[in-house]
Amino acid sequence: MSVEVTNETVWQIDPKLFSDLGLWVMERMQVSTQSDLTILFVDPDPIAQLHMRWMQLEGPTDVMSFPMDELRPGEDGKIMEGVLGDIVICPWVAAQQAAAAGHSTMDEMMLLAIHGTLHLLGYDHVDPVQERQMFGLQRQLLLTFFAVRDQPVPQAELPAGSTDLLAQWDANHASGRNIDKPLNGEKN
Rank of each mutant, 00 (worst) to 15 (best):
A95E: 14
V42P: 13
F66A: 01
H103D: 07
Q151N: 13
D107C: 09
A156I: 09
T9K: 06
P44G: 09
L166W: 02
P154S: 09
Q140R: 08
N178Y: 09
E27D: 15
P154E: 10
Q151Y: 09
E8T: 08
P60D: 04
R72L: 02
P91A: 01
P73V: 01
F66Q: 01
A48F: 04
S35A: 03
G82C: 05
R149I: 05
H51F: 02
D86M: 07
L84A: 13
N7T: 07
F41I: 06
D36K: 15
Q133A: 07
V42A: 13
P152D: 11
A94W: 12
A171M: 09
A101M: 11
F146R: 11
P154H: 02
E27C: 06
L121K: 01
L21I: 03
L111K: 12
Q138P: 02
V63L: 08
W11A: 11
M29G: 12
V129G: 04
K181R: 12
T144S: 14
Q34V: 08
V3T: 15
M64Q: 13
R132Y: 09
F18K: 04
Q96R: 08
H103M: 03
V129I: 07
F41N: 14
L120E: 03
F135V: 12
V93D: 08
L112Q: 15
S32R: 00
M29A: 08
L21R: 07
P46K: 00
T144P: 11
Q96Y: 05
F135D: 15
A98M: 03
T105H: 03
W11D: 13
R72I: 01
P15C: 04
F146E: 12
E4R: 14
D164C: 06
A156C: 15
L141R: 00
Q49C: 04
N184K: 06
V3D: 02
M1Q: 10
H119W: 10
T33S: 01
A100R: 06
G185H: 10
Q96M: 04
E8R: 10
Y123S: 08
G74E: 00
L183M: 14
Q34E: 15
M1T: 13
D107I: 02
P60V: 06
I39E: 07
D69C: 01
M68D: 12
R28D: 00
A101V: 08
R177G: 12
G102V: 05
A113C: 08
H125G: 05
V10Q: 14
E58P: 06
S2W: 00
M106N: 13
L37Y: 05
H51N: 15
F66C: 00
D14T: 11
Q130F: 03
I79M: 06
E186I: 02
G85Q: 03
H119R: 14
P67F: 00
I114N: 11
L23Y: 07
S65F: 04
P128G: 07
Q30V: 02
V88A: 02
L143P: 12
M106S: 14
T33C: 00
S175H: 10
